[in-house]
Amino acid sequence: MMVPTLKRIAPQLSTLVALIILITFIFPSFLNLSMVDGRLVGPLVDVAKRSAPVALLAIGMTLVIATKGIDLSVGAIIAICGASAAWAVSAGYGLGPALVIALSAGIACGLWNGVLVSMVGIQPFVATLILMTAGRGIAQLITEGRILTFTDPSFGWIGSGTLFGLPVPVWLWLATGVLMALLLRRTALGMLIEAVGINRRASALSGVNARVLLIAVYAASGFCAALAGLVVTADIRGADANNAGLWLELDAILAVVIGGNSLLGGRFSIAASVIGALIIQTINAGILLGGFPPEYNLVIKAALVVVILVLQSPNLVTHFAFLRGALPTRRPSEQVQQTGKPKP
């Protein structure tokens, strides 16, 4: 079990390591780690913490994409769940009920998407576009158009607290990733999702309940988005309906793609997607620490992403193999020339 997983995520892991090395050249203290007041601090810890929203989204997005779908609404779900949690906390319901409300809102959004895709038969792109557009409006209704600030320290802990030396958001994506991977791979869910993604009709004819699976997958994506919404909201101690999670759905999709998962569905790896999210955040951190003018941010990010995707492309692998295959044939001929020289 362990060896194939490692083999699968090797390209992503090596990309991440290469990026970290690259940034360390530009900014030598990137690898600095120290313990302050029982918590680990350093740029790498920040990267892990800042990756949380996209990593959480990428976990859910991986499943949706494995079914040949896409979930564009996760950014808006972040806004909705953050707004409902902030509203509940500031209305005095306490942390527990606020979490329940936010997570249920996320799952409800996911169920809505799932029903549109699976029962109504709307294409995933369009079905989730609906909530992507409407979701931010719903969030604005909850916050009444302003940044809903709260002071509850226990909620803030989710965004900036520390547990066993690591930031709480890091624990959140680690736990979600590990639990989700266990749930999918220790049961038959993972294989059934892949089967539906590769060939829904053949799977249904084999008795796979594709409808329910699809709905469940979108609900899982909504749940992950709700967790991300909690992190984002707790981080700034306020729900910003206009900006919370804005464009994060695209980063999440990018993370899944960098993770080597096909947008055409089928085989998936949650670990690789999460590493994809770490890669994106590492790039962001590198740009920030490098001190480039902000006009260059997107260009640098895009250039690095292109390089990463090209290096991972299977086409390139065959080209590379071809080049390597061509080399030995050249070498012997050189040897022949060398041995041939002294003769005359």
Binding site: S29, I147, D235, I236, N243, A244, L288, L289
Partner: peptide, 17 residues
């Protein structure tokens, strides 16, 4: 980006740097 979370994460980077 004029946002609270943008301000926070960029400031974190500045502090590190």
């Amino acid at each position: 980006d004029f946002t609270r979370s943008g301000g926070k994460s960029v400031m974190e980077g500045f502090l590190q740097a």
